[in-house]
């Protein structure tokens, strides 16, 4: 299982492209998505992204896994647009959203986190004048990516504990221990970061 597009090793052109260039293209694609107006244009954009997936040696199933967490959001946004602005606009909005999520996942699937962190640190370099420490921003990104499987694992553990005690699906009985466990994890992680010299 590869949660939310963690790096998959490879030697394709996409893998070898510098992280900064990939991030730049992603930003451009995000800005360009505003100009998509017709369903056929969105279809073409999604197709183009899928072609890049294949060129990067990634399966279409991998691509599908990246947009699966988006289904609820897509259903809500799409449903809203079908009612308010019509089905064509719904296809454009949901399609553009899907294409961008696919592209963002492609960046993380083909780029080592360390390279992404380096790129972000370089991008944030000018912010030093505002007393921002770019290394901290990079670390934040790395910890954010690392936190996803950790929180999922905590959530699974809590669900199992609830089932073992015969408890039903109570949102409060799920959310409170998840928040507490996440905070405890964050506390322990902070201690480990200090032990590994991050605060020095």
């Amino acid at each position: 299982m590869n949660l939310l597009g963690l790096y998959q090793p490879g030697s394709s052109l996409v893998h070898r492209m510098p992280a900064l260039a990939k991030l730049g293209l992603l930003v451009l694609a995000g800005a360009g998505a505003v100009f998509l107006d017709d369903p056929w244009q969105v279809g073409l954009a999604v197709l183009a992204v899928l072609v890049v997936y294949v060129a990067a040696g990634l399966s279409l199933l991998t691509a599908l896994r990246q947009v699966r967490p988006l289904l609820w959001v897509a259903a809500l946004v799409g449903g809203f647009h079908v009612v308010v602005t019509g089905w064509e606009r719904a296809v454009v909005v949901v399609g553009a959203l899907g294409a961008l999520v696919l592209l963002a996942s492609l960046v993380t699937l083909t780029t080592r986190t360390t390279d992404l962190v380096d790129a972000v640190v370089r991008l944030c370099g000018p912010l030093r004048v505002f007393r921002v420490r770019p290394e901290r921003v990079g670390l934040l990104l790395a910890l954010g990516i690392r936190a996803v499987p950790v929180v999922v694992s905590l959530a699974e553990g809590i669900r199992d504990a609830q089932r073992a005690r015969g408890l039903g699906a109570s949102p409060r009985a799920f959310a409170v221990p998840l928040v507490v466990a996440s905070l405890r994890h964050a506390d322990a992680l902070g201690e480990a970061l200090v032990a590994r010299g991050v605060d020095d």
Partner: peptide
């Protein structure tokens, strides 16, 4: 799990 910082 509390001391592994990076994803890989």
């Amino acid at each position: 799990d509390a001391q592994i910082v990076m994803p890989t």
